[in-house]
Simulated assay, not measured.
Amino acid sequence: MSKISKLLIAILAILMTGAVAQFVAINRENNENIKIDSAESGQIEADKPFKVGIVLSIGGLGDKSYNDLAYEGTRLAQEKLGIEYSYIEPATSIETEMAYGAHHLRQYAKEDYDLVIATGFLFKDACEKVAQEYPDVQFVIIDSVVAAPNVTSLTFKTNEGSFLVGAVAGMVTKTNTIGYIGAQDTEIFQEFRNGYEQGAVYVNPEVSIASRIVGGDNPFAVPNRGYELANELIAQQADVVYTVAGATGIGAIEACKEKGIYAIGVDSDQDYIAKGTVITSMMKKIDTAVYTAIELAMKGELESGILEFNIANGGIDTSPFTHTRDQLPADALAKLDQIKKDIISGKIKLN
Rank of each mutant, 00 (worst) to 15 (best):
L8R: 14
L8E: 10
L12S: 10
I14V: 06
T17N: 14
V20A: 08
Q22W: 00
Q22N: 15
F23V: 06
F23N: 13
R28T: 14
N30Y: 11
I34G: 00
D37Y: 11
E40K: 14
S41K: 13
Q43N: 02
I44S: 06
K51H: 13
G53T: 05
G59V: 02
G62H: 08
Y66N: 00
N67S: 03
R75G: 04
K80A: 03
I88Y: 11
S93V: 05
A99Q: 14
G101Y: 11
H103E: 15
L105A: 06
A109L: 06
D112W: 01
D112T: 06
Y113R: 03
D114F: 12
L115D: 02
A118T: 07
E128C: 02
Q138S: 14
F139K: 02
V140R: 13
I141M: 07
A148E: 10
F156M: 08
F163C: 04
A167F: 11
V172C: 07
K174F: 01
I178A: 07
I178M: 10
Q184T: 12
E187K: 12
Q190G: 00
Q190A: 07
E191L: 14
F192M: 04
R193P: 00
N194V: 12
Y196C: 02
G199A: 11
V203D: 03
V203Q: 07
P205Y: 07
S208E: 14
S211C: 09
I213M: 11
I213F: 12
G216S: 01
G226A: 10
Y227A: 04
E228F: 08
L229D: 05
L229E: 05
A230T: 13
A230F: 06
I234K: 11
Q237P: 01
A238L: 06
D239L: 10
V240F: 03
V240Y: 13
V244E: 00
G251E: 04
C256H: 00
C256P: 08
G260W: 10
I261H: 05
Y262S: 02
S268F: 08
D269R: 11
A274L: 12
V278A: 04
K284E: 01
I294P: 02
I294F: 04
K299W: 00
E301M: 13
E303P: 04
E303Y: 08
A312G: 13
N313W: 10
G315W: 13
T318R: 10
S319H: 01
Q327E: 09
P329M: 11
D331K: 15
A334Y: 06
D337N: 15
I339D: 09
K341N: 14
G346A: 09
K349P: 03
